[in-house]
Design a protein around this nucleic acid. Structure first.
Lengths: 252, 252
DNA sequence: TAATTGCCGACTGTTGACAACTGACAGTCA
DNA sequence: TGACTGTCAGTTGTCAACAGTCGGCAATTA
């Protein structure tokens, strides 16, 4: 949000091609930005599992830079919630306990609800078509049991609302929460109960969108939020309580 | 959220007094943490107005430390949204444009809505009494035109729900948004239209809470969100569009 | 005069070294 | 044997210096 890598306007020289950057731009990013990006990728992809200790000296050697940029990168990632820093104790890839996961999940859903109610008055036929297409994809993937593809389409489905909401801060915070929780796909699934239920709920939302009914669409979205809450009240523990949940993102 | 300043458990030595720290604890915080805290105070209090440039060398001299801790502190504050860092250009106290302010405002209200629906099933008589008391305070302050006192009670009112929600991540994000927007109290007021309306809405919420009706309470809260939206559609500009809004937190 | 080019000061980005702290281990004593 | 204390390696926190980049200003040229 803050450190905008100032998008420069088109340069006058060589303005022929318009799909790729004409002059392969020099990497103007600072070292710590590059480090941060690489570390983020590794964390999100699962190469760095939750709980992995991130030693400054080790990382510095690995990246071939001094400890300064490493510290900077770790600090930013800590602010994003991807790593956890304990003063004088070092950095660790953040582990979410079951409760923390549910907390994030609830907030994420609340943001989605807001996105829906903001987006609907702003959506045109193109966006509605996109929603329909994505919904159909999700149905297909669910029938074939393609969980990962399902979640991908699901994410795209929700992203339509986020983008259409026109609220940039919302988009940032949503993205951040998504990154934090995306590593625990399996548990997200456990919370949802079944793909079928998710699909049914989304179908209802699409209908409301087509009708331009912001209120019921938002209401439908809001009903999601109570799912993890109920799970908390009952004794069905999808993850052992207060136990770190570990990454299960293997095997496609 | 991440850097927990590990609350140490009670030491066995000198466990007589229980209200103040028995052994005046050594300041175990790192330098950059102290710098961050001081800068945050200054920004929130308005001593550092939005747009103020924060030079590393100047701050380093001012604090009597080297640039390292300053950089660290600025980086964290940037991640929190209180300062804006442009690579190789330096740090500036964040200025919110009108649109950015509205964006944050909407997200904040969404989080409050979530807080209400989560909190109500968890609230006991004590919390309800607290709500009633705070509501009465707000009525009094509004009648006397004590705007700042009103907002203080208002903040406490909302904080009851946030705390009672039991969702720590929600609490963190809410606090962060509050800090970002709190410096623009006057504009918050402009968005709201009048204190009276705010009070009426809160009264309705208190009633719903007393009835334990989570759904309508959340619905009442959610209705707030559309206020800034409508203002955006109409041509009433409480702040010039795309103009940085400046601090008006003087007086009292 | 207007636009371009080169220079310059000031600032940030990065580095390597030093200092302080932490947790663990081994040794000592009751 | 058990608890306490001192030491130690490894780590992070901090510092001061160097190098690179940015925007502004002045000199130059058409």
């Amino acid at each position: 949000m803050t450190e905008t890598s100032s998008q420069t306007e088109g340069s006058p020289v060589g303005a022929a091609l318009d799909d790729a950057p004409v002059e392969t731009r020099v990497d103007n990013r600072t070292l710590w930005e590059q480090v941060r990006e690489k570390l983020r990728e590794d964390i999100l992809s699962g190469s760095l599992a939750p709980g992995t200790v991130l030693s400054e000296v080790a990382l510095a050697e690995s990246f071939g830079v001094s400890r300064g940029p490493i510290r900077e990168a770790l600090g930013r990632l800590a602010a994003e919630g991807l790593v956890t820093i304990k003063p004088r104790r070092g950095a660790v890839v953040t582990e979410l306990t079951r409760d923390e996961f549910i907390d994030s999940y609830q907030v994420r859903e609340a943001l989605e609800t807001l996105a829906v109610s903001l987006a609907i008055p702003r959506m045109g036929p193109a966006e509605v078509d996109e929603l329909r297409a994505l919904h159909r994809q999700m149905v297909d993937h669910a029938e074939r049991g393609e969980v990962n593809a399902f979640f991908e389409a699901n994410a795209a489905f929700h992203d339509v609302f986020i983008k259409a909401s026109g609220n940039r801060r919302l988009a940032e915070m949503y993205k951040r929460l998504l990154e934090q929780t995306a590593r625990y796909l399996a548990h997200s699934l456990a919370l949802r109960g079944s793909l079928g239920k998710s699909i049914a709920e989304h179908a209802a939302i699409v209908e409301a969108v087509e009708a331009g009914d912001a209120d019921s669409a938002a209401r439908l979205m809001a009903d999601h939020i109570e799912v993890p809450q109920r799970l908390e009240e009952t004794d069905e523990h999808p993850v052992p309580p207060d136990q770190p949940v570990t990454n299960t993102n293997e095997g496609t």
